[in-house]
């Protein structure tokens, strides 16, 4: 456990170091142009002479400007500390100022995306479980629907997202609902496939045992199939919630939505605000990690209560 912790720490530290090291050549050209304008001596002189040189060669030739590369306003690659400061200023610092939900706050944008994600995820999960139960108990549903549910996993159904947003907008539905619909159908299919697999996971010996008790179908469902499906269900729920989040973010891209993490990404890329893009990206990553982590915790609690794992 301890050894794993140190290994992860070293790897993360190495990534951060590499990130800083990469920021120098990534940002060197603008930093040099800027420094030259302010009167510093750069080799070679003149932006034109530097245009075709490699960023690494330029970095090695001008070590004096390395510091400048790490504090750019609109860097090609912002440094970890720039991203961290931006993240803090648009979240924690806003809370301290009592403006947690102002338009500039990532908490506000995160909440907009999160609410659509959760609503869609909830709808998709409930419908997915219901369909899975139907599939397990009805042969014709199994044969008709299941192949399509499996095929749906291999195609980029997220491509439907922009159309759903625009069509619903044109009939007057906007805000959270269109995004939730995208999240819902993205989480629906993995849940169906995982849940069917789970409900079918009891082996024939366990099913035969219940038959010797003359248990009814519903008893078999509640006492055997449902509990044994939970590990499978949670595995697909984790996939589903990640897909839901991506769906909600992509759902914010068309129509130029003004709020949500996707809107922040898009606005950042319009105006070249790289630090804003990176902080929105990290906010989305933190959100995804939290959601998956919470699901993992619920899974452990539930499985322990049901005695599935010690």
């Amino acid at each position: 456990m301890m050894r794993t912790f140190w290994a992860v720490l070293v790897v993360v530290a190495a990534i951060v170091l590499f990130w800083y090291a990469a920021a120098v050549p990534m940002n060197i050209k603008t930093a040099l142009t800027q420094a030259e304008r302010e009167g510093a001596v750069i080799s070679p002189e003149g932006a034109a002479a530097r245009r075709d040189m490699s960023a690494i060669a330029l970095s090695l030739a001008n070590p004096a400007q390395w510091g400048d590369t790490l504090v750019q306003d609109k860097p090609r690659l912002p440094t970890p500390d720039q991203v961290a400061v931006e993240l803090w200023q648009t979240s924690g610092a806003m809370v301290l100022k009592g403006r947690a939900f102002s338009k500039r706050s990532l908490l506000f944008h995160g909440w907009v995306t999160l609410s659509a994600t959760l609503l869609g995820f909830g709808i998709g999960t409930v419908l997915g479980i219901l369909l899975a139960v139907g599939i397990v108990h009805s042969r014709v549903m199994d044969m008709s629907v299941m192949p399509w549910a499996i095929v749906s996993q291999t195609i980029p159904i997220i491509a439907l997202a922009p159309m759903i947003i625009v069509v619903l907008y044109s009939v007057g539905v906007q805000g959270i609902i269109p995004k939730a619909i995208i999240s819902a159908y993205l989480s629906f299919f993995p849940v169906v496939v995982g849940m069917v697999k789970g409900l079918r996971s009891p082996d024939s010996m366990q099913l035969d045992l219940l038959r010797t008790y003359n248990a009814s179908t519903s008893q078999g469902f509640w006492k055997l199939r449902l509990p044994s499906s939970l590990p499978y269900l949670f595995a697909s729920l984790k996939v589903a919630i990640a897909a839901s989040l991506v769906g909600a973010i992509v759902g914010e891209l068309p129509t130029g939505a003004v709020s949500g993490l996707g809107a922040r990404l898009l606005a950042g890329s319009y105006y070249g605000q790289t630090i804003q893009i990176w902080s929105a990206l990290f906010a989305a990553a933190i959100l995804a990690a939290l959601l998956v982590g919470i699901l993992g915790m619920i899974e452990r609690l539930l499985l322990r209560r049901m005695g599935v794992v010690a």
Binding site: T4, A7, V10, L245, V246, A284, A285, A288
Partner: peptide
């Protein structure tokens, strides 16, 4: 030990945002 947990973590993130 070091990379696998990081890899598992990153695999669950909305990478398309990059």
């Amino acid at each position: 030990r070091g990379l696998l947990p990081v890899g598992n973590f990153v695999a669950a993130l909305p990478i398309v945002g990059t």
